[in-house]
Write a protein that binds this DNA or RNA. Structure first.
Lengths: 235, 235
DNA sequence: AGATATCTTGAGGGGTGCCTCAAGTTCGGG
DNA sequence: CCCGAACTTGAGGCACCCCTCAAGATATCT
């Protein structure tokens, strides 16, 4: 029973060229793997990261068994596909925010553009508002984005524009709101989220600040909450 | 084929004492109906209005067939049960808001207390953020609540405290946000929503107002959006 | 070409939940 | 006490979706 470990792709778990070289897929298997990742990209973009795996297999022209052979779990597939799908756009948003001369402007633009991505791309929406703990690449990517967010927040606060009691852990609150708003209004008023973001931003300026009733979340609480956000069950 | 119409309860669809008197349930059937509504109250409160009907039947000690005989649809059951479950508390919230001497205070308290109910009671959360178009009683109740909301908003605006470009149709945006926030943080930081509400409220004061990027929703759009909010599917 | 390890298939078993209907049970008036 | 109408039952069909595994197909090495 050779444990191939459902990797197949980028086995670079440690230093390269080590003992356990990649077992080298058979050529047909390699083709299928490519068809699968391509299909996954399409389906995830259209339907979000909860899309039925059966649809991905079908669109790749392959049976679900093959999908499970290649990637053993949904999250492995996500990890193989989604970072490439979202990394560039997320980085670009953070970069544009940093490039903004006015720190408040940079912050506001960051929040707005991220929400815009959420509204446009279901996969990205899931990336921003949920967490897939088995998806290491994606996890790393997210933690990088969290850093960007923190810097953008801190810069706006140093400039005295963003209220001082705001914390980077408050950012997710905003994106969670956008998530549900986008879902609710996508087919009826696809820009409605802009209005909500506008209202919130006005509450984030230093001049607007009134004391807040409770402490911010800890990063760990944010993480836990994001895990819960994917659950299907009412309770 | 006698069309009894899945009513059984309060047939008062039109003027009473008319032709189609209530067919009068058999005594055992009446008992079952009572057990069912009692069970539905419990289950809806614990799990929200999407709770499996099978669980309600089971908790009533009755088969699902009986449940479907009495109420033909989930919404009929909701309509029979939920108004009594929420009306008093919703009215009380609105009344307290009106009773507040300071209009801004009244508005802020209204938003806060409604969110509090959302956080506490899954059934109420669904009532506030979704719409069940077949549930006439409940629909009527909601439209009454909308009126209350509108009055509270307008009073705060007349007092110059609430920004003038806020509309009653913006209220649902807030409650949708609370909905997702409560779901995400219930087990991790059950008061987190208070922080989000605090931030939003600070954006709603007249002094905080900056121009908003898009028009408010129409009441019809709000209605449509609330219909969508219950959907299971990613898309 | 033959042999063998690798890969694919797709039916099938899980689980959740909705809804129905033929057959059996119970009520309650006569 | 009897019988028909009213009521209940619960297995079974449906729809999703997950994941597995024995059997068959295919690539690659010699």
């Amino acid at each position: 029973m050779r444990q191939v470990g459902h990797l197949g792709v980028l086995v670079s778990t440690g230093k390269a060229g080590d003992a356990a070289q990649k077992p080298a897929l058979r050529r047909d298997a390699q083709r299928n793997l490519e068809k699968l990742t391509a299909a996954a990209v399409d389906v995830f973009r259209e339907r979000g990261l909860d899309a039925p795996l059966e649809e991905i297999a079908q669109r790749a022209g392959v049976s679900t068994g093959t999908l499970y052979n290649r990637f053993g779990t949904r999250e492995a597939l996500i990890d193989a596909v989604v970072p490439g799908l979202v990394a560039a756009r997320l980085d670009a948003v953070a970069a544009r925010a940093h490039a903004c001369a006015d720190p408040w402007q940079g912050f506001a633009q960051y929040v707005t553009e991220l929400s815009e991505l959420q509204a446009t791309d279901p996969a990205l929406n899931d990336v921003v508002s949920r967490r897939f703990p088995e998806a290491e690449q994606l996890l790393a990517l997210c933690s990088g984005q969290v850093d960007h967010g923190r810097q953008i927040v801190e810069r706006a606060q140093r400039a005295g524009a963003l209220r001082a009691d705001f914390t980077p852990e408050d950012l997710p609150l905003i994106f969670w709101s956008t998530q549900v708003l986008v879902r609710a209004t996508a087919e009826v008023a696809p820009d409605a989220w802009r209005r909500a973001i506008g209202l919130v931003l006005d509450g984030l300026r230093t001049e607007a600040a009134h004391p807040l009733p409770v402490e911010p979340l800890t990063p760990e609480q944010v993480h836990q909450a994001m895990l819960h956000l994917g659950e299907r069950k009412p309770r």
